[in-house]
Design a binder for these strands. Structure first.
Lengths: 366, 366
DNA sequence: TTGTACGCGTTATCAT
DNA sequence: ATGATAACGCGTACAA
């Protein structure tokens, strides 16, 4: 037995087959489609593999089959909390599959994305997850021509490449503004940073809602291309206040900015929400725990990543989803920072959670 | 020309070699060690490759060479801010190398880590980055036997597997407590969550510093295995207050907890730092921008990841570092939340940055 | 259900 | 410095 072992001492399929008394190809089939074997051979191969501690050689498999078991993931940032939640969802979904994740960071550059895409595609990935709907023409052409399933995540839009999962940032922003209107606010400012396409669409939603109400003014909008931060939130808010001291609410394009605004208000002794209401975006954990608690638009980030990876793996394995485009929606989580009738902000132990009031708004229905 | 193109229409090394008028192996050498070619052939292969748009087949390369160009990375969490910074450093360093990153999440389980390690090692990675120094015996044995460079990150300790980069969490905690002592605080509480090995060592540092001063009391310590969060910080602090109302400072094992304590103090109208001082750990961005600004222990997370990956790649390529163990140290960044003579907490625009005072303490020197 | 023959694209080895 | 030959370990295609 075992006379033709490889130099490296590693166990090959051939050894397993020999021990099991079958041909190599039968052993091979066992690992890819056990159902195709007779029960007898199946159990023999299984025990032989276990006994020898066989581990498939992925390189050989990829070379022979002309495809890899790699899922490529292109995201614009590794720092952003939003993407770490999405990523966790993706990794969790991939964990019990035979696919592994190959991650790359486009740094919010669609040219960088194009370059990475070319690299990825050359390795014939089993599937691809890309962020957003704003690829370059070149990227779009490559993706259309790619012979693997593709999921676009983070937002939904017309003309999907293949599958798509996300929500409407435009509608979500409109809902946030509508909530502020409902609380009686009129002079509502907008604070945005980084201004990637999705933040831009939140701004568009804000602008359209304000215009619909005849309340839009350009000076109510402060944005910057600078990466977002809590500190930046305070600085941008300060700008806004200087331009428009009469402002009665601020819609922040994300929660870090909102926290910065909260702190800046504290510094200036501006009462929230009596003088100025605050609404954030994403509903990070700390929003429920701030003082006062901060209203935000909840998005399903983990679920987005997790579902995207699951859908992709299913599609790779030939089970395409019923609906290739999935709208995960959002919810405006109303908290103290935007409540007209300010609720008690000093509960027994923690201001978090309990008093949240949700305003559900599945997106896509304006 | 090009008579023997592959079915898939892809350009192989053979095509490049043919166009360049050399043998395949010469073309192969060009990509791995250009210096080994004569100048004439070098330029011919180069232009042939460019003209044909040749992209190496990594699977074939891995199969033939018996090794991959993959760096395996094992980290305990994808959610934690700390690790997203480290990861960014790792990815940045790998970007301009020929190595790609294979990431896996151990979820703070050393058993899961062992399992993943087995998987990784089976693929013959070019190098490995693992978190911390608390592997299982089995893991340790596998790592010792692995024939690739390995870097342990996040902390330093005795008996490195191979290379190591981090800092002493024990010393960092002692420095934080020393700072509070210097500000006149005596009844200093400790708040910790998750209690992974590094948080445990911060606790150990706190305990030793307190004992040295004859001030340690068990009821000053509140910890939980629950994952950390801002909300949790408030809850644990509440526990602490109940046990020991006379407490005059809190050392938080991370900044999220510290932010939770800050909010809880606000809810309870406890003045910071007059009644209670706060010190966090990691120095996340928001600490400099909170009201009052929050003292924290700065750690070099990005640099840790970046240097780890660089060292690893250098080692893979045969350039082993002079010092295999690198202490990146830490700094206590003193801010308003722990200043005895409380500075103005309402500067013109933003309380951030400007007034930071640093207390440098390279670790490893107790 | 099982097996045979061959190719996947590259690099190692050993010459020259 | 360059080349011929033979793996590397597995899967596809087709046949039985």
């Amino acid at each position: 037995m075992g006379r033709n072992r490889t130099k490296s001492g590693k166990i090959r399929l051939a050894e397993v087959a020999e021990l099991a008394g079958v041909s190599p190809i039968t052993a091979s089939r066992f690992f890819r489609n056990p159902e195709a074997l007779s029960l007898a051979k199946r159990t023999r191969v299984e025990s032989a593999a276990r006994e020898l501690g066989y581990v498939p050689n992925l390189a050989a498999r990829a070379l022979a089959s002309q495809r890899t078991e790699v899922i490529g993931v292109l995201i614009p940032s590794l720092t952003n909390n939003v993407f770490s939640d999405v990523l966790r969802g993706i990794y969790d979904a991939s964990e019990n599959s035979r696919y592994s994740i190959q991650l790359s960071n486009t740094r919010y550059s669609i040219l960088q994305e194009e370059k990475l895409l070319r690299l990825f595609l050359a390795q014939k990935p089993a599937g691809l997850i890309v962020t957003g709907i704003d690829q370059t023409t070149e990227s779009r052409a490559m993706l259309d021509a790619a012979d693997c399933p593709i999921v676009q995540i983070m937002e939904i839009g017309p003309d999907p490449i293949d599958m798509m999962i996300g929500f409407s940032h435009y509608d979500a922003a409109r809902a946030a503004v509508a909530h502020l209107f409902a609380q009686g606010h009129r002079k509502i400012g907008f604070v945005g940073a980084r201004m990637d396409p999705r933040v831009q669409r939140r701004l568009d939603g804000y602008v359209s809602a304000m215009k619909d109400a005849g309340l839009f003014e350009q000076r109510l909008v402060v944005t910057t291309a600078t990466p977002t931060s809590v500190t930046l939130g305070g600085a941008l808010f300060t700008d806004l206040l200087t331009r428009e001291p009469g402002m009665d609410a601020v819609f922040c394009a994300n929660d870090d900015l909102a926290l910065g605004v909260l702190f800046e208000c504290r510094r200036r002794e501006i009462a929230i929400p009596e003088q100025i209401a605050i609404v954030g975006f994403n509903d990070l954990e700390f929003m429920a725990s701030a003082v006062p608690t901060l209203t935000s638009v909840r998005t399903n980030r983990y679920e987005m990543g997790n579902t995207a990876a699951s859908m992709l793996i299913d599609a790779i394995d030939g089970r395409r989803p019923e609906h290739p485009v999935l709208d995960l929606g959002f919810k405006v989580i109303e908290r103290q920072s935007s409540s007209a009738r300010r609720s008690d902000n000093r509960p027994a132990v923690s201001g978090a959670g309990a008093a949240n009031k949700m305003v559900a708004l599945p997106s896509g229905h304006d």
